[in-house]
């Protein structure tokens, strides 16, 4: 299905100018409940055209992870996710031998008296291989979206290994030989910058910094993700959130908090946002205790933001 789409796209490009193609991505992503600006849509377009991974960096909760998920919903390509963490290694990311199954096989075989050579060949065949996300992404029949989430959490050694995989989409399994990708996956890496990633990895990727959205885009995201919210209420929600964002806090609210709060306010069925409402729902917006205290102290001016 993807193949067809691609072939017809070549033709399309002659007729359409590319600006229209970017708009098409924006429309498609919107259908998958994700609002792109020009920068994000262009990165998606290029990643597809040039077959390069996207490295998305930015503060927490601005839609880095959801970018990959939404792209999978939009294109219909299956999503494979590799969540990174400290200590993640090849065994967990690429493949492992299913040693329990191997042991069972050895025990079953003892009675039959097969030679060790034959047994060994058998034990290290695909049957006993446990493919992990990277291998699954490479060997999948059709093209997939591979999300390598929070790379910055993985160790430097793992990053180097990942770089190798991303360079040739080919892995070697000593017992089985080299496995080539059947189709290049569409790769999205995300990072919260808890540490700097290597230059080599950056060079290999298209880079996309996702920041907090502008007013108009954030408003649109709220409309899209909290359907049925009154226009007026949506504006007031955004006004309050953006005011808090300007305060000097440990962790300012991001899009996920905006959405949570907008939903809550809508569900509560209130049409004015007053001090009392903000105060009772504040923990949806601000998580750190010290920050909460700070914001509680300026409820008055916050509530004023929500009035005209």
């Amino acid at each position: 299905m993807r193949g067809q789409k691609k072939a017809s796209k070549e033709k399309e490009k002659v007729e359409k100018n590319n600006g229209a193609l970017i708009d098409e991505i924006k429309q498609g992503m919107k259908g998958a409940e994700y609002l792109c600006d020009d920068g994000i849509a262009t990165a998606l377009y290029l990643a597809d055209e040039l077959n390069k991974p996207i490295l998305a960096e930015g503060p927490a909760g601005v839609g880095k992870t959801d970018l990959a998920k939404a792209y999978s919903r939009y294109t219909g390509l299956p999503l494979i996710r590799l969540q990174c963490y400290e200590g993640l290694d090849e065994a967990k990311a690429l493949y492992e031998w299913n040693y329990k199954k191997q042991l069972l096989r050895i025990q079953a075989d003892r009675t039959e008296g097969t030679s060790w050579e034959d047994l060994e060949d058998d034990l290290f065949s695909e049957e006993f291989l446990l493919p992990r996300p990277l291998l699954r992404a490479i060997t999948n029949e059709g093209r997939v979206v591979l999300l390598v989430d929070e790379v910055d959490k993985a160790d430097v050694e793992f990053e180097a290994f990942l770089l190798e995989v991303l360079s040739d989409f080919q892995v070697s399994i000593p017992e089985l030989g080299t496995v080539d990708a059947r189709q290049m996956p569409f790769v999205v890496l995300t990072s919260n910058r808890t540490r700097d990633l290597s230059e080599a990895l950056r060079r290999r990727c298209l880079y996309l910094y996702i920041d907090f959205p502008e007013v108009s885009r954030e408003l649109e995201i709220v409309r899209l993700r909290v359907p049925g919210i009154a226009e007026d209420l949506a504006r007031r929600v955004i006004a309050v959130v953006r005011y808090i964002r300007q305060m000097d806090l440990k962790k300012v609210p991001s899009i996920s908090e905006t959405l949570d709060w907008a939903t809550a306010v809508k569900v509560l069925g209130r049409d004015v946002i007053d001090e009392e409402l903000i105060s009772s729902t504040l923990s949806l917006l601000v998580k750190e205790q010290k920050d909460l205290e700070k914001v509680q102290a300026s409820l008055k001016s916050l509530a004023r933001q929500a009035l005209e």
């Binding site: 100018n17 590319n18 600006g19 193609l21 970017i22 020009d38 920068g39 262009t42 990165a43 377009y45 290029l46 055209e49 040039l50 390069k52 996207i54 490295l55 960096e57 930015g58 230059e199 950056r202 060079r203 990727c205 298209l206 880079y207 996309l208 910094y209």
Partner: peptide, 30 residues
């Protein structure tokens, strides 16, 4: 080289998109 390729496939008519395409290929740090 990536930048040249990106410009070949990315629309030049719209300045914003042209800029985004270049930025994604040559700027690797915010």
């Amino acid at each position: 080289i990536d930048a040249c390729e990106a410009v070949r496939v990315a629309p030049l008519e719209k300045m914003d998109i042209f800029r985004s395409a270049l930025r994604a290929t040559v700027v690797k740090n915010e």
